[in-house]
Design a protein around this nucleic acid. Structure first.
Lengths: 210, 210, 210, 210
DNA sequence: TATGAATGAGGTTTCATTCAT
DNA sequence: AATGAATGAAACCTCATTCAT
């Protein structure tokens, strides 16, 4: 049946994309050989080129497929709530640790964006628009609301709300660079992060809960 | 005279290392061609291979040459001072912005470490030992002294003092990835950083100075 | 019904051969892709390989299918006539212009024979035996009869009667090579050809008729 | 010495061009492998690509290098003479047989132009301009002068003087296609050619001289 | 000592052919 | 019988490295 064939094809394409992601993440764009991608995907050497016009096209397809947050859900969750701002902030940071800091694929994505950004500027732009800009906007709305309510200390934080997430970014990089010889206790790092930024932005002190 | 010759050689070697740094930073290890390094250094195509055993050896030499902070001076400056802890913290963050966040070469070094880390683990280890571990240690001594004095709120920060520098790291990555289309006002970002972490770690509020 | 199926197959095979001829003529043997042949024939990619053992076999089948003159008819027409030799010669040259010089498929056949001759010597041999040798023989009989009758000037022409057709060959090549930028007025060229060779072989002058 | 190096390089380039000509002529553009060119030239596999930007560029360089007649000399020789037109015609045809019909490289050139013309139209145009058009012009001047003098029968030959050379073209093609199994006695063919066209264009009969 | 021509391994890509459906 | 996805050999081209000059 034709649809069976098509499904097979789609499955193989997925397997190639997955294998390509792993190879690109491990070696970078230039050092990755299509033959290795094929071998890892368990297909013949020529198949990646058969499915994707070029190595560059494969790379872009790999990165474009990485799932982004569902902003509708996130925005609704955080914009629509009545909880204290600090509690919302904790929730948002928690989401970031669950989805990004604790997720090796996210680390590799960051590696690829940093390493290959100059060669694929449109990818950097895409991630800025779809991830960074929207995250910053959500944080800013949260903080603005907190200032109105008197939860959050007014200040420059409204200009650069992303600084609140900076320790999480640091954790991601730490895992990329040093995890092997200097592992990170992510749970404790998370608490340290929370403690720092919650007290950094609040109107009143917030002793650590743990 | 022999020493004249040696000086010539050293100059040429330096020029090759400098050119190699720029090419590696722009294109990554695998995509950089020794011929381009030679051209940029103004020497013959074969000279990089003549001076360095291999492309890998050249890469390592490039990264090992990048100057590290003079820890003796820094340690003395910050450990030996009597100023209030928050003031010292401000001073240290300022140094980081001057030397790293505002220094494109430092950005490129970070890019190379992230991109080529898996291929050159000893380099990552080197930078951890010579830069990261020592910076963390200095920060930790500073905070510990602050807690003793009652300047700094006791807490998890002593476990992960590097979080204090996280926004600076974020600024570096921002410049690497987004500077072209979304430039960063570094002075304001610096203030936001200070405001966040100074309040985040202090026993008492520290209204922004600017 | 079995014969219906057979007819289907024959039709498809014909369409593949026709498509293959066009592709081979346009691009040559090596640069022609079976997939393009299939697409042009409106069949699936694998069908040419399914019908023909190999690309080479397809090429040979293509060239062997090109129709040859019906020598029985031609021989009867020219050998059996009582008309003056020069008139018969005119008739024969006219046939050549109608069937070959004015027929783009014949041009392409010549291109393929010249281009791929070294790779398919049996094809060249086939065309020599079935076309060239027989044409030469017919011409030779015509001229010999003309000499007997006193129409044709005795001479070397009997050794190389094909020279009489040489301008037609030149016209074919001209169309292959230069037609696009330097079109040929075939009617006038035909008259020039006739004028040259008729006077070249005749015992008496033959002023141009046009 | 630098000039020694340069001379070496030029010699090697020549050897590659010569080897490439032979391979291209034997197999055609698409079926020729650069590695075979290299092997025939006695150099390493990569050298042809090192000297020429691409296979196409190599092909063009090969064809452009094939020497053309020195038209200044030829024009002077045939335009400036007082000999009878028929004698000049004989001389010109003789030149064509010496230089082209008897020259296997010319045969191969013709094969390449016919086979690869569609892929390299600028080459066809080049040969039309530099060879064909000038040959036609010279022939036309010769015949026009002959008509003025009363040597040459007026007629359509002035429109298509190239027909005079058509048997030579036929001989070239014969050698390309049939020489192996049906060799041509070039000397006799030449006489037959002369006999045909001299009588074909002359005002008075010209019995064969041989 | 430095040059740059030359080498040749190795990568991407193409495509004739196979074969499960 | 026909399809078209998959295979893998082979081609072009790149470029780190060598070495005669």
């Amino acid at each position: 049946m034709a649809s069976r064939r098509r499904r097979d094809r789609e499955i193989r394409e997925s397997e190639i994309l997955e294998a390509a992601f792993e190879e690109f993440a491990a070696r970078g764009f230039a050092a990755t050989r299509l033959e290795d991608v094929a071998r890892r995907a368990g297909v013949a050497k020529g198949l990646p080129s058969f499915y994707f016009e070029s190595k560059e096209a494969l790379f872009k397809a790999v990165l474009r497929r990485l799932v982004l947050p569902d902003w509708d859900v996130l925005d609704a969750q955080f914009d629509g709530s009545d909880r204290p701002t600090v509690s919302l902030l904790r929730g948002l940071i928690t989401v970031v640790y669950e989805r990004l800091v604790g997720n090796p694929r996210a680390h590799q994505l960051l590696r690829l964006l940093i390493a290959e950004g100059p060669r694929f500027p449109e990818l950097t732009e895409f991630y800025h628009a779809e991830l960074i800009a929207r995250a910053i906007a959500l944080l800013r709305r949260l903080l603005a609301r907190g200032m109105e309510r008197g939860d959050i200390r007014p200040g420059l934080i409204l200009d650069y709300p992303q600084t609140i997430m900076a320790p999480a970014l640091m954790a991601v990089l730490w895992q990329l660079l040093f995890a092997e010889h200097h592992p990170l206790d992510l749970a404790r790092f998370f608490e340290a992060h929370l403690d720092l930024v919650v007290n950094g932005v609040s109107e009143r002190p917030h002793p650590a809960e743990v």
